[in-house]
Nucleic acid binder design. Structure first.
Lengths: 210, 210
DNA sequence: CACTCTACCAAACAACTGTTTGTTTTGGGA
DNA sequence: TCCCAAAACAAACAGTTGTTTGGTAGAGTG
């Protein structure tokens, strides 16, 4: 699937600045359209199973035209991925800052995380679905982006009043894993993210040993 | 990536039976080699990112030769997938049948599940890594195979002495999700499956609310 | 020893891949 | 109005993909 591996030279005039003057983007810029289309395909077919032609077609343009905006397919992926992380962070942030019971806060954070992952937009799904090593050239950047967010999640766990010697790292991995894996079995219209978050947190909070 | 989509006609003489007599397989059959190679590639590159040439090369034969044993790439995948499910089931079965404390049994089941998933062989990893919809033609069969196993897992949870009105379904989804997602962050040589299983089960069992 | 399938080789097929190149359209500031 | 850069087109490139076809070495059986 790496197919070509010709020199990735960078696009003609990427999205970066120029020498002389303003380099003002135009109003009819279809870049957001490209990102939306890419996000949709990456989310429900996966990165490798999506071709540049799929994306270009959905955005109403020709494959080659994408390379005016992105130097490569992988660069397009990071753009979508970064936007995905940004959205998840934005969805979780309010819940994180709300001043209330730590357990309630965690539940809200989980609910926001789930909603961003399962319902809100394709961007969020991309972050969970696409593996960094699907795009070797930019994998490290993707991991960095993801870690950045997970730190925010860790913060919600750090605030919990837990018994001494509780393994907070294990707790984080367990909860985040359970949430992320829900992409596998979740069906829209049944239990809402809010309800699921409540159940999961309650399972952790309450003692199950009779 | 579906590339061709020509008529899948089925291989010349698949692995099925013949009309006249015995159809005795030969001793130097390289079929297991093919399966092993496929499992290895599927496990660490993913289904779509693995080409028939990759597999054939690793098995020391030509791409076309694979079609003597399998009618298509997707059929090869189900074969590997089925073997993967079989191995996970086999790994978990002893723990499931052992007569002991239900919580201890669950922990053992989780440990076996994790070991099969992370360390034992590539076959197990394929079951978690490859999504059924990566292979549309055989996706349903893959789901059926996976469900078959998850029922066994549900059995371990059914045996737990839980407080009334505990949501066993949520508990199963949560635990299984956490275990399966571990493929993302697990690094061999650090905490063993046994240790991880113990931590996870304990987090559920003990009350975290101080 | 002759025969029969099993299991493979060798070579091609058409479709599809990411990407490049040169050219053209078009919006917005001067 | 002119003009330039932004943004897109049109067409090709070289390589990879899953798969098919016809042929053949060589075990295993009688």
């Amino acid at each position: 699937m790496p197919v070509a591996a010709r020199q990735p030279v960078a696009a003609r005039q990427p999205v970066a600045a120029r020498q002389p003057a303003a380099s003002v983007p135009r109003a009819d810029n279809r870049l957001p359209l490209i990102l939306d289309a890419a996000a949709r395909f990456f989310a429900d077919k996966g990165y490798g199973y999506t071709s540049m032609r799929d994306i270009a077609g959905a955005a109403g343009m020709l494959p080659g035209s994408l390379y005016y905006h992105f130097a490569s397919k992988e660069e397009l992926l990071v753009a979508v991925y970064a936007e995905g992380v940004r959205r998840i962070k934005a969805a979780v942030a309010p819940a994180l800052e709300l001043d209330c019971d730590p357990w309630q806060r965690l539940e809200n954070v989980c609910a926001a995380h789930l909603a961003a992952l399962l319902e809100d937009s394709d961007y969020g799904q991309v972050v969970i679905r696409v593996r960094p090593d699907d795009a070797p050239e930019v994998g490290k950047r993707m991991i960095a982006l993801r870690d950045e967010y997970e730190q925010a999640f860790a913060q919600a766990i750090q605030g919990l009043p837990l018994p001494p010697r509780t393994d907070r790292r294990a707790l984080r991995l367990m909860l985040l894993g359970a949430l992320n894996w829900s992409q596998t079995w979740y069906r829209s219209g049944r239990d809402s993210p809010q309800v699921l978050a409540r159940r999961f947190v309650r399972l952790l909070r309450d003692p199950l040993d009779a």
